[in-house]
């Protein structure tokens, strides 16, 4: 497997790796470093990659584990809780301003979830992987994934309704 073959296989999901890393590590810089490091690791294990049927799932699992390690290690202890500067392309400007607060509210609500639920929400509701793939990535049974997903979604919903009723949205 040479370099261009390798890049053809792994580059399409670099944004997904980055977004998952950012979901877990919070800061953009940390997530960028993590992505870089993960791609270097993938490159080192390129001989193995040729044998994998689903490189993307393998990469996502690696990302998850790597971020867990980072979170555990002391290096990550001085993480800043910098907030995101995500892009909104599709909404018109006035709407954008109107939604900005409530949308970043969702971001914060997801941030408060336990790590496992964060990952599952990220993989399902944002990256739109099917259940089978998620099970492989997080190494969980389908029922457990569904339960975690349901719990996370309900938690977010409850918080949203609370805020909505207070008239913050």
């Amino acid at each position: 497997m040479n370099q261009s073959d390798f890049l053809k296989v792994v580059l399409p999901f670099k944004d997904k790796v980055f977004r998952l890393a950012k979901r877990l590590l919070v800061s953009t810089e940390e997530a960028e470093d993590a992505t870089q490091e993960l791609y270097f690791k993938l490159w080192k294990s390129k001989e193995k990659i040729a044998d994998y049927q689903n490189v993307e799932a393998f990469a996502m699992t690696m990302t998850k584990n790597y971020c867990y390690d980072r979170l555990k290690s002391k290096q990550a202890s001085n993480l800043t809780l910098a907030h995101s500067n995500y892009l909104e392309k599709d909404t018109a400007l006035d709407k954008k301003v109107e939604h900005q607060d409530s949308v970043s509210l969702v971001h914060q609500l997801i941030e408060k979830l336990p790590d496992q639920q964060k990952i599952i929400i990220q993989l399902r509701d944002i990256e739109e992987y099917d259940l089978e793939e998620i099970c492989k990535m997080v190494d969980m049974k389908p029922i457990a994934v569904r339960v975690a997903l349901s719990r996370a979604r309900k938690t977010i919903r409850e918080e949203l309704i609370k805020k909505h009723n207070y008239g913050i949205c």
Partner: peptide
């Protein structure tokens, strides 16, 4: 009250890794 949630999901997917990857 559900709108922010689903708009967030769509916008969150637009975030890109902008740096070049070095092997």
């Amino acid at each position: 009250e559900y709108q922010p949630l689903f708009t967030y999901y769509v916008t969150a997917k637009n975030e890109r890794y902008s740096k070049t990857i070095e092997l």
